[in-house]
């Protein structure tokens, strides 16, 4: 309530004529124009260029970047043409696999970071303990470590010559893309897998680790101020009214932090999908480990800039969707505050 009133009154003040300074009007116009120009040059123009380049060969060219057919079998055609089609089909297949990999890695990282972030924000926000400041600094560490170094840390830990090299290089786990439903007949575990992967770095697992490392501050950091401001009283009240720990979390804690959580998830998702440095090191440049940003670079280096931009447009699209969600979230929050729900972010 209060916030809204304050905002309105200050808006009114800004809108009104200021008789003391006659120049207020043109100052406002100049500042606004400068802002618009700045955003235009540094945000809108590059973004528009991404889409322009992505569609530079028309819609069919755009689609071709993701779905390209190999050479028809049994049809005679010049060697060079045939090889070009093989390349295009293989490129498109790898692009699709990079999208799937990004979704898998990003989602896994976000799920982990939500669990970790909520736990960390909870611990830091609600309890006092020795070494708390140190813990907060450690949570912030990925912000200050270069992502490439982050990737190298995992290579140094889990690489063949690393600290846990012996164990890690022989660590076998199922390829998530090969997991399928085999049912319960005869098994207690209903999932089977066709493929096993070995090792940690240079496999999707390494990519997940690298991504989690560089993204873990996002959820925790966006939750901490809210959780801290929240205090413990509402939760204690819920407990005293007979709610279980889970009920308290689900019905009291979560609704209070939902906007902050959503915001953190959004930041975390964008970064997880867009991470390059850390992932680049632990991917071992292997095509099967490509995420969207790695793939964009490879396409660019294969002189296929249209396909690179087409793929990049997906990330740009994600950014736009994030912007949209943020808009809706802000609007919803304002609405709740106006209604008196007090959705404090």
């Amino acid at each position: 309530m209060t916030t809204t009133t304050l905002a309105t009154s200050s808006n009114r003040r800004a809108d009104g004529e200021n008789p003391a300074t006659g120049s207020a009007r043109w100052v406002r116009i100049v500042l606004t124009l400068a802002t618009v120009a700045f955003i235009g040059i540094f945000v809108v123009l590059p973004l528009a260029n991404v889409f322009a380049q992505a569609f530079s060969h028309g819609v069919s060219g755009y689609v071709h970047a993701f779905f390209a057919d190999g050479p028809p079998r049994g049809v005679h055609m010049p060697v060079r043409e045939r090889l070009k089609m093989i390349t295009a089909a293989s490129q498109a297949r790898q692009t699709r696999s990079a999208i799937a990999m990004t979704l898998l890695v990003g989602t896994t990282a976000v799920v982990f970071n939500v669990v970790f972030g909520v736990a960390a924000a909870w611990a830091v926000g609600k309890f006092r303990f020795r070494g708390k400041t140190l813990l907060i600094s450690l949570i912030d560490l990925p912000f200050s470590v270069s992502p490439v170094v982050a990737g190298l840390i995992f290579v140094l830990l889990f690489g063949r010559e690393g600290v846990f090299g012996n164990w890690a290089t022989h660590f076998k786990w199922p390829d998530p893309f090969s997991i399928y439903w085999r049912g319960f007949n005869g098994h207690w575990w209903p999932f089977g897998d066709d493929q096993q992967l070995e090792g940690i770095v240079f496999t999707p697992l390494g990519i997940v680790l690298g991504t989690i490392f560089v993204t873990f501050p996002f959820v925790a950091r966006s939750l901490m101020p809210t959780v801290e401001a929240q205090g413990v009283e509402e939760e204690q009240a819920a407990l005293s009214l007979g709610a279980s720990g889970w009920q308290t979390f689900r019905r009291v804690t979560l609704p209070n932090i939902r906007w902050a959580l959503l915001y953190g998830i959004m930041l975390c998702t964008c970064r997880a999908f867009g991470e390059f440095g850390a992932v680049s090191v632990v991917s071992g440049n292997t095509d099967a480990n490509d995420t969207i940003p790695l793939r964009v670079e490879k396409l660019w280096q294969s002189y296929d800039s249209q396909a690179a931009f087409a793929l990049a447009s997906l990330l740009a699209g994600l950014a736009l969707i994030t912007l949209l969600i943020k808009g809706v979230v802000d609007w919803r929050r304002a609405a709740t505050v106006r209604a008196g729900g007090g959705g404090v972010l």
Binding site: A237, N256, T336, G341, G342, G343
Partner: peptide, 13 residues
Amino acid sequence: IGFVFQHYALFKH
């Protein structure tokens, strides 16, 4: 027990 907190601790949402 029923506990009433100093700042009421009503569920804001």
